[in-house]
Nucleic acid binder design. Structure first.
Lengths: 323, 323
DNA sequence: CTGAAAGCGCTTACAG
DNA sequence: CTGAAAGCGCTTACAG
């Protein structure tokens, strides 16, 4: 390659890496040779000396059922991250970490210098990975507030405020018995949304009534049946995510309750499917892609940017027909 | 590291890589040192000499709207691939290739030796990437039959037979005017499903009636409205995927048609959402994850395995209430 | 079974 | 502005 262009390897390297200090003629000659030979620098050799890999790890620590099923969350994040990374010419490598074995693999992988940074996705409270990763000198940013003892940079949406707006809306519509379907209690998003629900109700004379789900449709349907049994008189339900709200809609229909006439339903996320339920779902829109992009920017930014205050993006209540 | 264990670097390498020719005592000493020092081999240095990277590229050549929206297809594939790769201790790196710029990046990335193999996802007929990649000496296997001039190893499900079973079912239920909603005409899955539809109808005295969509819910709803306008007397519709079937259900409801009483609907894919529509959707189940796993096995297998006859997995008709 | 040495393909001070 | 040389951290024939 260097021979073909009649220059040294060093000069080829400089041209390929866009160094300014190269004579135009030489640069042209090198570029021509690169083109003719289809030369592409070997990435491993380059990484070895630059100590950078051009890859960012996306750690998905979630039981397959949720992240990889019908919830568009993972896909939306993966896409936004890839896209935002394009400008920096970096790729995302998927790091599944749902099992202890997966955790060990991810740790080894990161420690082995395979990635320039790590994005944590939907971590659970019990997860030992954040702490382990924080000990590495690889930058880590979490998508969503992690429940950890170690402080960790993160971006998130305002789950508490979002839930508040949903419950207030129900109150404004004159609903009196507002139940809730909660998510996994070891995830901050689920926790925060329940906090918002309780906060609003505690300001009134209404009692709270909660059934737990795990963010899946099926669990939403089961929780709804439970709720109906516990309090047949309920006239509204706030589900901590849309998938569970869809399950609730299903259970309500089977129980012969009309929505929103008998029972009003509000979800959280505003996934695409929310527009196609019957009736269309009133829900809290969460800017998943924007949070993901913010995470990437922090990850790529300086140490100071990363350790700055967590970025919390606002949510928006989307009123459709279910409430 | 080598000093700590009192052995040479070569021996450390042998122990770490599990070479059999190491004395138990020495192996133990090295392992102890590895543990104490938290030693992890540098991946770039290793790749440089072994010429392997431990990464597989997942090329997603799809407009964001589809793959990354609500269609669980991408997530299911990503998960199955990651999982199947775990045994081989390889990771998947996401390679978005929806734009020409994306294509160029992917080509460069693969040519740069970043990956040991490439999986192509839902390629479109016009896509130049398969041919470009086939020229590399990196193994390539496609998930889904690619529409290319160059022969390319692939695995798929039997889309034609699946569509046939759907349309036959409609016929068996006594439906007389069976319309269809097709997918993107440059994708083999869409093409093959329409072929199945036409094959069955051509064996009868029924005429075919087709409206085109692009695999999204919205396009399914639009196509359904079109069909209703073209032939108000239709009593069944076969949609080339579930998302479009869901859109069709929506349009039908808005048009005041009852499902299945007035119009029967059958989809294709059997995504999770199909069980939660009103009424639950009759559809053709497609083994997406199994195809993905088969793709990985071929990719990891020998040259002969890869170039063997394409593996075509069967589909299954799932009868629910919509038809 | 183990070690000394070469070499993987780059980048980057260091001279000139 | 360009080249010779060192060096990144491993693995792997090759001796012994």
């Amino acid at each position: 390659m260097a021979a073909r262009a009649g220059v040294s390897r060093a000069t080829v390297s400089r041209v390929v890496n866009g160094s300014a200090t190269v004579t135009p003629e030489i640069r042209a000659a090198v570029l021509r040779a690169v083109d003719q030979l289809g030369y592409v620098p070997n990435s491993a050799a380059r990484s070895l000396v630059t100590r950078r890999t051009g890859s960012i790890g996306l750690v998905v620590s979630e039981p397959p059922s949720r992240v990889f099923s019908d919830d568009p969350f993972f896909a939306v994040v993966a896409r936004a991250v890839s896209q935002e990374l394009e400008g920096a010419d970096k790729q995302v490598v998927l790091l599944p970490a749902s099992s202890p074995a997966g955790h060990a693999r991810v740790e080894r992988y990161v420690a082995g210098g395979h990635v320039d940074g790590v994005i944590l996705l939907s971590m659970h409270g019990s997860d030992p990975l954040p702490a382990a990763l924080a000990r590495t000198d690889v930058p880590v940013v979490s998508h969503g507030r992690p429940i950890t003892t170690v402080p960790l940079p993160y971006c998130d949406c305002d789950n508490v405020a979002g839930a508040r707006s949903a419950v207030r809306h129900l109150l404004d519509r004159g609903r009196r018995r507002i139940a809730a379907i909660g998510g996994p209690p070891d995830m901050s998003a689920a926790l925060d949304r329940m906090t918002g629900y309780r906060e609003v109700l505690s300001g009134t004379d209404r009692r709270s009534l909660v059934a737990m789900g795990d963010f899946t449709r099926e669990s939403g349907a089961a929780a709804m049946r439970q709720l109906l049994e516990d309090d047949p008189g309920l006239d509204a339900v706030f589900a901590a995510n849309d998938l569970m709200a869809i399950g609730a809609l299903h259970a309500l229909r089977q129980a012969g309750r009309r929505v929103p006439d008998d029972v009003a339903v509000v979800g959280f996320d505003d996934i695409e499917a929310a527009r196609y339920t019957d009736p269309p779902l009133t829900t809290v829109r969460q800017p998943v892609a924007e949070v993901a992009r913010a995470v990437v920017r922090r990850l790529l930014g300086s140490e100071e940017e990363r350790t700055a205050e967590p970025l919390i993006l606002p949510t928006e209540l989307i009123v459709r027909d279910s409430a």
